[in-house]
Design a protein around this nucleic acid. Structure first.
Lengths: 236, 236
DNA sequence: CTTGGGATACTAGTATGCAAGTGATGATCG
DNA sequence: CGATCATCACTTGCATACTAGTATCCCAAG
């Protein structure tokens, strides 16, 4: 690849007690793609990644294969592996899948939510409020993920979140590109609280409506981001 | 696993022009699991599978890794890989995901369905009617898959069906165990036609309702099947 | 007869080597 | 000087070799 895009340093010794290598590198590469440290279109050399992570090509290959299934990388058989460019269609599909799943999941959640779960939600939202002012984007995205995961899990269908999460990766790629978040970040917290309130009030219809509105906020940013980074998108 | 469960014979020469090995063996193993040729709880030896397919362990491993992500097999690190037993929770989750996705997808489908697509649907249903009387279950499942895929694709979100399909694998495992299908198979065709009619009539609400009812039919069989094959299920 | 221990035969995970195919580069020819 | 062709460096996909860890079986000791 042209630029020797560096992943975050790998502080631990090559295989120094971090469990299996494949999930580790898979998460690291996925994160690097979502954060655009590996920019769309960048070439991913299996050998180079192997060197960088201090492992062999095998776990790298397995990780890239999974990421290909998620359409985050594109593998051209005898040519190379590339970070997928952001596809408007992929974004639209991801949004559709996520909305369908989470909005379906929040209904049973709103019907069954117990004290303990509501307290956990509230705790998360309070953390969001703390982060809101600090401007720590990494912390924010972690909390946001955890919040939506909690909502999904409340449905009792633990298999839903992993599916939604994979779709969310595509949406997160977009959000990472919009440098100016702080302004609508307070709005997100407000919406999160509104959703939680509806769930706590055993109001499935209200919760679904609030969540659907919330999920669609992300899309508003697309045109502006696309204008700022035209080379990151598929021409399609 | 005591018995050396045999997969269907692999007629083609080891690597005789069937494209990449990994997708091939992945589909074959998945199919064998869904058809219960590889029964729940069976041990899957990477070496044995490699011999049987005439390939090395590498593509076998990659295939099993994907199937693990779909929860169709269970990998115990230094012990072995096993066909996952049928989990009521997994069935429930799969049903939930599939219902959420397909019911969400059929709404835009019912709003945009064009002449050509409706003709394709009708053609498929006519094939179903032909198969209905022949009792060819394999052909039926192929048509059923194609039908639901058409419905999903009509939404314009081509990424939806692959997700729904993965969930559907769990449900198909159940259906494969109920030997006595022919009786409610005509009913399925009727429902399929009802759904298509609603789509053609530009009636999203009606289509969604008909589809939801249709999707829930499968669940009625669970108790009987579980009674017939208790060892295929997790005790949970 | 029961029980404990060790060799053994498996396993998954990882590393490495090999084959087939593609794009780029440079030398040679017109 | 320009164009064409061969070579080369690089890629993925597959095969093979090696490592570390677990269950099992058999034998010996109590």
């Amino acid at each position: 690849m042209a630029e020797p895009t560096r992943l975050r340093a790998v502080p631990d010794p090559p295989t120094g007690k971090r469990g299996p290598a494949r999930p580790f590198v898979q998460a690291a590469i996925r994160d690097a793609i979502v954060r655009a440290e590996l920019p769309p279109g960048a070439k991913l050399s299996e050998n180079e990644l192997a060197d960088r992570f201090g492992v062999s090509r095998t776990p790298i290959r397995e990780a890239l294969g999974r990421l290909r299934d998620d359409r985050l990388v594109q593998v051209v058989p005898q040519l190379g592996t590339f970070v997928a460019r952001i596809s408007i269609q992929a974004i639209s599909d991801a949004q559709f899948i996520r909305e369908a799943l989470e909005c379906a999941a929040i209904r049973p959640a709103a019907e069954q939510a117990g004290e303990e779960a509501m307290a956990a939600l509230e705790e998360n939202i309070r953390s969001q409020e703390r982060v809101r002012d600090s401007g720590d984007l990494d912390a924010w995205y972690l909390l946001d993920d955890a919040y939506h995961r909690q909502l999904c899990d409340l449905s009792g269908h633990m298999a839903v979140w992993p599916v939604s999460e994979r779709a969310k990766s595509h949406l997160n790629r977009l959000r990472r590109l919009s440098l100016s978040l702080p302004d609508y970040l307070p709005e997100m917290v407000v919406e999160h609280r509104a959703i939680a309130t509806a769930v706590g009030a055993r109001d499935p219809d209200g919760a679904e409506e609030a969540l659907r509105h919330h999920l669609r906020m992300v899309l508003r940013e697309i045109p502006r981001i696309r204008e700022q980074h035209p080379d990151y998108f598929e021409e399609a």
